[in-house]
Protein backbone atom coordinates (compact mmCIF):
# COMPACT_ATOMS: atom_id res chain seq x y z
CA UNK A 1 0.00 0.00 0.00
CA UNK A 2 2.74 2.39 0.94
CA UNK A 3 4.30 1.76 -2.44
CA UNK A 4 1.11 2.70 -4.31
CA UNK A 5 0.88 6.01 -2.47
CA UNK A 6 4.43 6.98 -3.29
CA UNK A 7 3.70 6.34 -6.95
CA UNK A 8 0.66 8.59 -6.84
CA UNK A 9 2.65 11.45 -5.36
CA UNK A 10 5.01 11.21 -8.30
CA UNK A 11 2.19 11.72 -10.79
CA UNK A 12 2.35 15.52 -10.48
CA UNK A 13 1.69 17.63 -13.59
CA UNK A 14 5.37 18.58 -13.74
CA UNK A 15 6.39 14.92 -13.77
CA UNK A 16 3.78 14.07 -16.41
CA UNK A 17 5.14 16.83 -18.61
CA UNK A 18 8.65 15.48 -18.26
CA UNK A 19 7.52 11.98 -19.19
CA UNK A 20 5.73 13.29 -22.28
CA UNK A 21 8.92 15.08 -23.25
CA UNK A 22 10.95 11.87 -22.90
CA UNK A 23 8.40 9.92 -24.95
CA UNK A 24 8.31 12.50 -27.75
CA UNK A 25 12.11 12.80 -27.76
CA UNK A 26 12.45 8.99 -27.98
CA UNK A 27 10.04 8.77 -30.91
CA UNK A 28 11.86 11.61 -32.65
CA UNK A 29 15.22 9.90 -32.21
CA UNK A 30 13.79 6.58 -33.44
CA UNK A 31 12.32 8.38 -36.45
CA UNK A 32 15.63 10.04 -37.32
CA UNK A 33 17.41 6.71 -36.89
CA UNK A 34 15.01 4.84 -39.16
CA UNK A 35 15.13 7.55 -41.82
CA UNK A 36 18.94 7.59 -41.85
CA UNK A 37 19.00 3.81 -42.23
CA UNK A 38 16.35 3.86 -44.95
CA UNK A 39 18.19 6.43 -47.06
CA UNK A 40 21.21 4.27 -48.10
CA UNK A 41 18.83 1.44 -48.98
CA UNK A 42 16.88 3.73 -51.32
CA UNK A 43 19.82 5.73 -52.66
CA UNK A 44 21.59 2.55 -53.81
CA UNK A 45 19.07 2.44 -56.66
CA UNK A 46 20.41 5.74 -58.06
CA UNK A 47 23.13 5.52 -60.75
CA UNK A 48 26.36 4.05 -59.38
CA UNK A 49 29.72 5.77 -59.75
CA UNK A 50 30.71 3.66 -62.77
CA UNK A 51 27.39 4.42 -64.46
CA UNK A 52 27.94 8.15 -63.92
CA UNK A 53 31.51 7.84 -65.22
CA UNK A 54 30.11 6.70 -68.58
CA UNK A 55 27.85 9.71 -68.77
CA UNK A 56 29.71 11.63 -71.50
CA UNK A 57 30.76 10.62 -75.03
CA UNK A 58 32.60 12.23 -77.94
CA UNK A 59 31.32 11.98 -81.52
CA UNK A 60 33.20 12.67 -84.73
CA UNK A 61 30.79 14.60 -86.97
CA UNK A 62 33.16 15.36 -89.85
CA UNK A 63 31.93 12.29 -91.81
CA UNK A 64 28.27 13.30 -91.72
CA UNK A 65 27.28 14.66 -95.17
CA UNK A 66 24.68 17.40 -95.63
CA UNK A 67 21.22 15.88 -95.30
CA UNK A 68 22.56 12.84 -93.47
CA UNK A 69 21.80 11.93 -89.89
CA UNK A 70 23.45 9.61 -87.39
CA UNK A 71 22.17 8.13 -84.17
CA UNK A 72 24.58 7.61 -81.27
CA UNK A 73 23.94 6.08 -77.87
CA UNK A 74 24.37 8.31 -74.84
CA UNK A 75 23.32 7.23 -71.33
CA UNK A 76 21.43 4.33 -72.90
CA UNK A 77 19.35 6.61 -75.09
CA UNK A 78 19.58 7.46 -78.84
CA UNK A 79 20.93 10.91 -79.68
CA UNK A 80 20.03 12.22 -83.14
CA UNK A 81 22.69 14.28 -84.93
CA UNK A 82 21.53 15.72 -88.26
CA UNK A 83 23.63 17.72 -90.69
CA UNK A 84 20.82 19.95 -91.91
CA UNK A 85 20.52 21.32 -95.46
CA UNK A 86 20.01 25.04 -96.16
CA UNK A 87 16.32 24.41 -96.88
CA UNK A 88 15.83 22.67 -93.58
CA UNK A 89 17.59 25.44 -91.69
CA UNK A 90 15.59 28.19 -93.41
CA UNK A 91 12.29 26.45 -92.87
CA UNK A 92 13.15 25.83 -89.20
CA UNK A 93 14.10 29.47 -88.71
CA UNK A 94 11.09 30.93 -90.50
CA UNK A 95 8.40 29.34 -88.32
CA UNK A 96 6.24 31.76 -86.30
CA UNK A 97 6.56 31.17 -82.55
CA UNK A 98 2.79 31.49 -82.27
CA UNK A 99 2.42 28.35 -84.39
CA UNK A 100 4.34 26.27 -81.83
CA UNK A 101 2.98 24.18 -78.98
CA UNK A 102 6.26 24.55 -77.06
CA UNK A 103 7.57 27.88 -78.37
CA UNK A 104 11.32 27.91 -78.97
CA UNK A 105 13.31 29.54 -81.77
CA UNK A 106 15.64 27.42 -83.86
CA UNK A 107 18.60 29.44 -82.53
CA UNK A 108 17.79 28.37 -79.01
CA UNK A 109 18.04 24.73 -80.06
CA UNK A 110 21.39 24.71 -81.88
CA UNK A 111 24.97 25.81 -81.30
CA UNK A 112 25.88 25.56 -84.94
CA UNK A 113 22.74 25.75 -87.18
CA UNK A 114 24.19 23.07 -89.49
CA UNK A 115 24.15 20.45 -86.80
CA UNK A 116 21.02 19.66 -84.86
CA UNK A 117 21.76 17.50 -81.79
CA UNK A 118 18.82 16.15 -79.81
CA UNK A 119 17.77 13.21 -77.69
CA UNK A 120 15.76 10.94 -79.97
CA UNK A 121 13.09 10.11 -77.45
CA UNK A 122 9.51 11.24 -78.04
CA UNK A 123 8.38 13.49 -75.20
CA UNK A 124 5.03 11.75 -75.17
CA UNK A 125 5.80 8.28 -73.84
CA UNK A 126 9.40 7.57 -74.73
CA UNK A 127 9.38 5.88 -78.17
CA UNK A 128 12.12 6.63 -80.72
CA UNK A 129 10.67 8.74 -83.59
CA UNK A 130 11.32 7.86 -87.27
CA UNK A 131 13.13 10.20 -89.64
CA UNK A 132 16.80 9.39 -89.20
CA UNK A 133 17.16 7.05 -92.17
CA UNK A 134 16.51 7.83 -95.80
CA UNK A 135 13.09 6.47 -96.63
CA UNK A 136 11.77 6.92 -93.10
CA UNK A 137 8.46 8.67 -92.65
CA UNK A 138 9.39 12.22 -91.62
CA UNK A 139 5.95 13.47 -90.71
CA UNK A 140 4.01 16.43 -92.03
CA UNK A 141 6.73 18.94 -91.06
CA UNK A 142 9.75 17.28 -92.70
CA UNK A 143 11.40 16.37 -89.43
CA UNK A 144 10.55 13.30 -87.36
CA UNK A 145 7.45 11.25 -86.86
CA UNK A 146 6.76 9.08 -83.85
CA UNK A 147 4.97 5.91 -84.97
CA UNK A 148 3.68 5.02 -81.50
CA UNK A 149 1.02 7.73 -81.12
CA UNK A 150 1.54 9.99 -84.14
CA UNK A 151 3.54 12.97 -82.97
CA UNK A 152 5.04 15.14 -85.74
CA UNK A 153 8.27 17.07 -85.18
CA UNK A 154 9.69 19.71 -87.55
CA UNK A 155 13.24 20.09 -88.89
CA UNK A 156 14.24 21.67 -85.58
CA UNK A 157 12.77 18.79 -83.62
CA UNK A 158 9.90 20.88 -82.30
CA UNK A 159 6.52 19.32 -81.64
CA UNK A 160 3.98 20.47 -84.25
CA UNK A 161 1.17 17.96 -84.16
CA UNK A 162 0.13 15.01 -82.02
CA UNK A 163 0.01 14.16 -78.32
CA UNK A 164 3.62 14.95 -77.32
CA UNK A 165 3.73 18.00 -75.03
CA UNK A 166 7.30 19.23 -75.60
CA UNK A 167 9.99 19.59 -78.26
CA UNK A 168 12.62 16.86 -78.52
CA UNK A 169 15.09 17.45 -75.69
CA UNK A 170 18.50 18.96 -76.39
CA UNK A 171 21.27 17.20 -74.43
CA UNK A 172 24.09 19.21 -72.88
CA UNK A 173 26.89 19.24 -75.50
CA UNK A 174 29.69 21.35 -76.84
CA UNK A 175 31.98 21.41 -79.86
CA UNK A 176 35.31 20.02 -78.66
CA UNK A 177 36.65 21.04 -82.10
CA UNK A 178 35.03 21.72 -85.49
CA UNK A 179 34.85 18.00 -86.12
CA UNK A 180 34.09 16.58 -82.65
CA UNK A 181 31.22 17.18 -80.29
CA UNK A 182 31.22 16.12 -76.68
CA UNK A 183 27.81 15.09 -75.38
CA UNK A 184 27.22 15.15 -71.60
Amino acid sequence: MAKTQTLKQEDTPANMGRRDFIVVASYAMAGIGLASVAWPLIDQMNPAADTLALASIEVDISKIEVGQAVTVKWRGKPVFIRHRSETEITSAQSVQLSDLKDPQTDDERVTNPQFLVMIGVCTHLGCVPLGQKTGDVKGEYDGWFCPCHGSHYDSSGRIRKGPAPLNLEIPPYQFASDAVIKIG
Binding site: P40, L41, D43, Q44, M45, N46, A48, A49, D50
Partner: peptide
Protein backbone atom coordinates in the same frame (compact mmCIF):
# COMPACT_ATOMS: atom_id res chain seq x y z
CA UNK B 1 20.51 -8.66 -55.35
CA UNK B 2 19.71 -5.50 -57.34
CA UNK B 3 23.42 -5.07 -58.11
CA UNK B 4 24.73 -8.64 -57.99
CA UNK B 5 25.35 -10.81 -61.08
CA UNK B 6 25.21 -14.60 -60.54
CA UNK B 7 27.66 -15.58 -63.25
CA UNK B 8 31.16 -17.00 -62.77
CA UNK B 9 32.67 -14.29 -64.99
CA UNK B 10 30.93 -11.38 -63.30
CA UNK B 11 30.05 -12.39 -59.74
CA UNK B 12 33.33 -11.33 -58.12
CA UNK B 13 33.44 -8.08 -60.09
CA UNK B 14 29.83 -7.28 -59.36
CA UNK B 15 30.53 -7.63 -55.63
CA UNK B 16 33.56 -5.35 -55.95
CA UNK B 17 31.39 -2.91 -57.90
CA UNK B 18 28.92 -2.95 -55.00
CA UNK B 19 31.83 -2.16 -52.67
CA UNK B 20 33.24 0.68 -54.77
CA UNK B 21 30.65 2.15 -57.12
CA UNK B 22 27.11 1.48 -55.93
CA UNK B 23 25.85 4.23 -53.65
CA UNK B 24 26.36 3.10 -50.02
CA UNK B 25 27.03 -0.37 -51.44
CA UNK B 26 29.96 -0.94 -49.06
CA UNK B 27 27.66 -0.24 -46.11
CA UNK B 28 24.88 -2.49 -47.32
Amino acid sequence: AMSYTPHVDYAFQSVERIMRDVNHGWLI
